[in-house]
């Protein structure tokens, strides 16, 4: 961080941020960059609706002061959806009936991507564990689990 400028990449583009370094990354993404895919569901790292990937790891963007991500790579659902992997996951969610109200789903999709990068052929238990920080109040999770398994199956070789 030089001269109070924070430089990081979001969905492949370099961004330079000069505001309050203590603002939450979630707010910078939503308010400054217009990336409203990450949602504010609880503001305390409990619900996972704000999940993004930071240097490839899934994290809660509501818990990250933007000043701490100098030089790091942020991927939001908007960026993921431009990739073959992202499209595969989104399509699987749609086909498996995993989407109801949808508010938690962008976060779920990011947790799914993080899982499949580490484990491209997960079993049901691994899927349930990987999304355990993403709360959903509509689906009871069964069809979300189906969607992740479907994405893994259809996307063989992508991850």
């Amino acid at each position: 961080m030089k001269d109070n400028k924070i430089e990081f990449r979001v969905n492949g583009e370099t961004r330079i941020y000069e505001g309050d370094p203590l603002r939450r990354l979630l707010d910078v993404l939503r308010e400054d960059l217009g990336l409203t895919g990450p949602k504010d569901g609880c503001g305390e790292g409990e619900c996972g609706a704000c999940s993004i990937l930071l240097d490839g790891e899934v994290v809660n963007s509501c818990l990250i002061p933007v000043g701490t991500i100098q030089g790091q790579e942020v991927l939001t659902v908007e960026g993921l959806n431009e990739t073959d992997q992202g499209k595969c996951i989104v399509e699987a969610y749609a086909d498996a009936g995993a989407v109801q109200c949808g508010f938690c789903i962008p976060g779920m999709v990011m947790a799914t991507e993080a899982l499949l990068r580490k484990n491209p052929s997960p079993d049901e238990a691994a899927v349930r564990k990987a999304i355990s920080g993403n709360l959903c109040r509509c689906t009871g999770y069964d069809q979300i689990v189906d969607a992740v398994l479907m994405a893994a199956d259809r996307g063989k070789g992508l991850w």
Partner: peptide, 8 residues
């Protein structure tokens, strides 16, 4: 907590 939190 959960995987996303343990990454931080």
């Amino acid at each position: 907590a959960a995987p996303s939190l343990r990454n931080l």
